[in-house]
Simulated scan of single mutants.
Amino acid sequence: MDSQHGPSLSRSLRYSYEQYKATADWLLAHTNRRPSIAIICGSGLGGLADTLKDQVVFKYCDVPNFPQSTVSGHAGRLVFGSLNGKMCVCMQGRFHFYEGHPVWKTTFPIRVFHLMGVDTLIVTNASGGLNEDFKVGDIMLIKDHINLPGFAGINPLVGPNDDRFGERFPCMSDAYDKELRKLAIDVSRDLGYWNNMREGVYCALAGPSYETIAESRMLRMLGADAVGMSTTHEVIAARHCKLRVFGLSLVTNKVVMDYESEERANHEEVLQTGKRSAELLEKLLTHIVGRMDCNSNMF
């Protein structure tokens, strides 16, 4: 047996069902928390996990089979706890293709959460605004996505299908749950946040370089409202497992579309904007989660 990965992974360069289950069973054995909601915190947005009550925390490096996050602004911890009456698990830091992880590894946690009993996935990310009506600090409800790397065959479902997770050809026309989006709209209005809310299409690129002006103009012509380097592969894996998906994208910078502009995208700007807008996003998500209709076992 391969001492690091076991025979299945070393032969096929994919996780086996048994490895997903081993990780899920390890987590279930090490905490009595039983989450129904999983939340992936994007760049600069990991503070949401710190608001959970009755926390149980695991470092990624301590969880069997778990990948490691290498990006600034991603703490690399799983945080279990209660958010407004619902039991959740938060990922403080996600995994990206540009870190060198293949997409079957970046989406590893999704199937683990599914085997733990999670039925709803909330994805958050930091993004660049392509839509000229978007302002820095706006929060976009993701109604659809463009998985641009998928056009080149980079998809977490490539390879043999395991029917224990889902069907070979999952439908993606309903990837982002309409009822949860409607709930988010209602909550944002109740909280007086509607002026900061947008709804649109998120486009994922592989990264880590930011997009050129020509690429940005092309993405806007394709119908994208915001662009980033994550999320879509997680959503595909979640929908394969029949999880409900809800997504929020924080607009941390305006994408440069003008050749005369002196603006330049940089990661520090992303993190700083995330910090400034984190309180609004955390309050919004806390209220949305509290009003979700789901089966949540507190302990």
Rank of each mutant, 00 (worst) to 15 (best):
V57E: 11
V71M: 06
P7F: 15
A265K: 10
A75S: 09
Q4D: 09
R94H: 08
R164A: 14
Q55V: 02
L115K: 06
L115A: 05
K86E: 06
G137W: 12
N196P: 01
G137D: 12
S3A: 15
N65Y: 11
A75T: 11
T23D: 04
G6Y: 13
D225V: 13
L141S: 01
G166I: 03
P109F: 03
R198I: 08
K254H: 10
T70C: 05
V201P: 00
Y202Q: 02
P170L: 07
F95N: 00
S261T: 05
F165M: 02
L28T: 11
G247K: 05
E269G: 15
E167T: 13
H96M: 02
R181G: 09
K254D: 09
Q19S: 13
R181Q: 09
M172I: 09
M87N: 09
D174N: 13
L222E: 00
N125Y: 04
F246N: 04
F165I: 05
N161T: 08
K275H: 15
Y60G: 03
A184T: 08
E18T: 14
H287W: 12
G73H: 07
Y15D: 02
A75W: 06
M172F: 11
P109Q: 03
P109K: 03
L13E: 13
E268R: 11
M1Q: 15
T252H: 03
F97E: 09
H5R: 15
A265V: 12
A38Y: 06
S173M: 09
T120D: 07
C41V: 14
K242N: 15
D163P: 15
E282I: 13
L271Q: 08
K59M: 14
T106W: 03
H74P: 00
V63N: 03
A226G: 05
S69I: 06
P170E: 04
T23G: 04
V71P: 02
N155F: 08
E263I: 03
I213N: 01
D177L: 01
R168M: 05
T51W: 04
